[in-house]
Nucleic acid binder design. Structure first.
Lengths: 229, 229
DNA sequence: GTCATAAAGTGTAGAAAGTACACTATCATT
DNA sequence: AATGATAGTGTACTTTCTACACTTTATGAC
């Protein structure tokens, strides 16, 4: 079976820069390539777009097939199309970036045997193709976006403490934040709903849990509210 | 001559949402399609990506071929990939958005004979394919971006008055701005260099000309300066 | 059970930035 | 000389941002 066209066509792939957050580290999801080129090396999850699916469907399918992840925040990132980025043929890659609640997915440590693993973004291995550049683009987008859109919540479990959230922001922005000012600002947006639940079995005063109020977010967004931090 | 692949490949095009600013109106550049489908209708300038050029080269080539424009600010916008967006075959389009100094290019009024024309964004004709959606995406990006990056200058001639700049901002943001506050803020960024030139032959006090100081912009950008208006 | 340790939680004063607002200056036209 | 059009300019008030330190509450070690 083969496909013939009157003019040359590039191949089109989708790739995802998937971030997770784990206590203290921002992490990136990589998969080991099972075929040449770069067989056995780490790469972004992704693959070829099929003719009957749109781009987002394609990346969701690939993520499911390669990593089992279905619940994530997904957004198109950038399209990479240098002529020589794949040694086989001309391949244009539509990159997505994604945020995942890490606690929902088992954390496998990277080894020779593992096919999928989370790496701290500060200690990434070499990656195939031009995926390093795609990762950098994704990191820059995350950092920029977290300042003016409440997407940090996507990286946390449904309920979290203000301390968790602050650690996340400090990690992504790579700078310490003042606790009182942070709380004032976050609570000032009215996006968090305080739960009547508290941490248990911690060796210090138990923190209150909060959850992200998505309805409230949609309301405010429609009114053009500015979520800048 | 034909091209055969083991797996199906989509076609890939580039399209550009090109904005210009003309005294009072934000304008969009459209071209008349010379072939089917949608022959004779207005569409975004663009075309198929060749295998030996990257995406930006492709859109620059198409803009030159179709409109003669070479000097412009260009940035990738979004990639559109619904399976049925082109009736011929699966076509994925990488859209760019571009800002042009309108005074550099002749303004042809749209007619049955014209192949290229500027339209006020408030009075756009029907456009081919899903180009309306692409235009909306471009408009949203322009509006968002003008708030936190000094890209408005790209739409103006090299030298301009503060009044010109304010009219541009008011048009793009669709809201009136206070003259004194606007000037304070714009001049406060230090991005404008006052020229020792003034308007001539105007029926009112002559305004001073300014120019965008690109070097200063690069300096500030590297230091993480915030250009928010 | 007391002490050490660890993080949670809380307010205020001063600085900086944003906002609202009105008149004078200068040019061309009549 | 009067009119009409846009340029150009400062200040008071409000809001937001920033810096900063102590008390509370839980566990674990002794």
């Amino acid at each position: 079976m083969s496909y013939t066209y009157k003019y040359p066509h590039p191949a089109v792939t989708v790739d995802a820069v998937v971030f997770g957050f784990d206590e203290a580290d921002l992490k990136l999801l990589l998969v080991r390539r099972r075929i040449d080129p770069f067989k056995g090396e780490w790469a972004l999850p992704g693959g070829f777009v099929r003719l009957n699916e749109n781009l987002e469907e394609a990346i969701r399918r690939e993520l499911l097939e390669e990593t089992g992840i279905t619940e994530l925040y997904l957004e198109q990132l950038y399209t990479f199309g240098e002529p020589d980025r794949d040694p086989r043929e001309r391949v244009i890659s539509v990159a997505y970036y994604a945020l995942v609640n890490l606690s929902l997915y088992p954390v496998a440590a990277a080894s020779d045997a593992t096919e999928v693993a989370w790496f701290p973004v500060a200690e990434l291995p070499e990656v195939a193709f031009d995926h390093e550049r795609i990762v950098e683009t994704g990191l820059a987008r995350l950092k920029a976006k977290v300042r003016y859109e409440p997407i940090g919540f996507e990286l946390l479990p449904r309920k979290f403490t203000l301390g968790d959230l602050q650690r996340l922001y400090e990690t992504v922005l790579e700078q310490p934040l003042d606790k009182r000012n942070f709380r004032k600002k976050i609570l000032g947006t009215n996006l968090l709903q305080a739960l009547k639940e508290y941490q248990q079995d911690v060796a210090h005063r138990a923190a209150q849990y909060y959850q992200f109020n998505r309805e409230r977010y949609e309301q405010l967004r429609k009114r053009g509210f500015n979520f800048e931090l």
